[in-house]
Amino acid sequence: MADDSFDLPGCLDRVRRRDQVAARELVDHLYPLVIRIVRSHLPRRVAEEDLAQDIFLKMFTRLEQYQGNVPFPHWVSRIAVTTCIDQLRAQKRRPEFRWADLSENEAEVLDNVLTDERDVTPGDALEARELVHKLLDQLKPDDRLVIQLLDLEQKTIAEISAQTGWNQTLIKVRAFRARRKLQKLFQELQNKEKS
């Protein structure tokens, strides 16, 4: 998406006329946007390239339905988000989260965060990211997406609304529900750690 000179309307016109070169240019142009969404919400055991391909194929088959009411990248974002959520829903059961599932470093980071005895260091960032993703895996797909966008990508409610198509009240409700579930999870982990 770094190429600001890209003629998106012209490219879309050519794609609608079944121009394969234009379709390739469009994929190249949108790939960074799509792959960032896929990586943020990638379900377990799903290859990111396969999911990206599904998203692009959906985009092409629905292109006639695009009315131009929202910017085209937002429209593609919504397809990407709903495709990822559908994949997460298809996985159905979320494995129970246990202290034993954490690596030694992840457990140490979590311990530091929970007990507040020692400051976490930037060197713990990778473990923290893995840990956060394991915790987010425990949430419902819609709730997980909201927390991911709010707390990790630091997007505003309005930006999330534009990206997902959900209204702002719904996003706040989902964020509240997700944080309550995470709080419960933290308490359970603290209790297990003490026992």
Binding site: D116, D124, A128, R129, D151, R179
Partner: peptide
Amino acid sequence: QWQKLTALARQAG
């Protein structure tokens, strides 16, 4: 605790 953890996770990039 959650803000501390997510702030650290963001640093991983």
